[in-house]
């Protein structure tokens, strides 16, 4: 399941519409205090503006549901680019804090990329050639603190303002970028959709034998090795009266197969 976090509804509106996301009822919602929209592959939460709001909404969401990828979509200011231009964040920074460098997936390469600097107040100076927002750093730092791998986190930003374009809460710029971003979001949702569970190695162990926890761990490792060789059936060919003898025989048979680099 893909989680999208956006600060306010106008940013998220094109995605809610194009991806056919339905609003969850508060009583059964992921996050009763915030609007949440879902389909079978995507959950989108409107977090509210600012880092504290982002942090709180993320933590609350993660306590209730497991996600395989986290995407922040929102507006950002830029000193040079016009409103409506879409980017993915290649480096996320905040003053007096270490930066994040997200993984760059091949399919994201169609988008331009830019550094993203998160600030506490709406940026006026735009001193660097970078995107400026208020939630991006908190998005990454909250997830990293929860031990989410950096490879499962990304941020797409659309320019909404700059030195010559004051900020407006409108869907216009996001709509403009939607044709670029929607396909990428759909692609991410496909890639991160939960695949059926891998075959459980336990079904290959004889039910008549008792395996300790340690022996089950050993069996699991052997099973993975056997799977890599396409030799899972080894488990069904061995008949022993105790778990230890069973595992030793299976291990020997797998090793013989493993050493055959034919």
């Amino acid at each position: 399941m893909l989680l999208i976090a956006s600060a306010f509804l106008k940013e998220a509106a094109p995605f809610i519409h194009h991806l056919c996301l339905k609003k969850e009822e508060p009583q059964s919602s992921l996050c009763p205090e915030k609007p949440v929209y879902t389909n079978e592959k995507i959950t989108l939460i409107i977090t509210g503006m600012g880092k504290k709001a982002m942090e709180k909404a993320l933590i609350s969401s993660m306590e209730k549901r497991a996600f395989s990828f986290y995407l922040n979509i929102g507006y950002a200011g830029h000193p040079l680019h016009l409103p409506g231009k879409a980017f993915f964040a290649q480096k996320i920074s905040q003053e007096n804090a270490s930066s994040f460098y997200p993984h760059i997936f091949p399919f994201m390469q169609r988008l331009s990329s830019s550094d993203l600097i998160s600030v506490d107040k709406m940026e006026k100076k735009f001193s660097k050639d970078a995107l400026y927002d208020m939630e991006g750093y908190a998005f990454f730092s909250t997830l990293i603190e929860k031990r989410i791998p950096l490879e499962a986190i990304a941020s797409f930003k659309v320019v909404s303002d700059g030195p010559n374009h004051p900020f407006q809460k409108t869907s216009l710029w996001m709509e403009k970028a939607a044709s670029e971003l929607i396909p990428l979001v759909e692609r991410l949702a496909e890639k991160t959709q939960r695949i059926g569970d891998a075959p459980d190695f336990l079904i290959y162990l004889p039910k008549s034998l008792h395996f300790t926890t340690y022996q089950k761990e050993r069996a699991k490792k052997l099973f993975h090795l056997a799977q890599s060789l396409g030799e899972e059936k080894v488990f069904t060919k061995v008949t022993k009266t105790n778990a230890q003898a069973f595992l030793e025989t299976v291990e020997h048979m797998i090793e013989q197969k493993a050493l055959d680099y034919a």
């Binding site: 290649q90 791998p149 490879e151």
Partner: peptide, 19 residues
């Protein structure tokens, strides 16, 4: 090339939990 500046290579290379 996509060029990204950093302070130290370790910010990227030595980070834990990489894939």
């Amino acid at each position: 090339p996509r060029v990204i500046y950093c302070d130290s290579y370790q910010e990227i290379f030595s980070r834990k939990q990489q894939n």
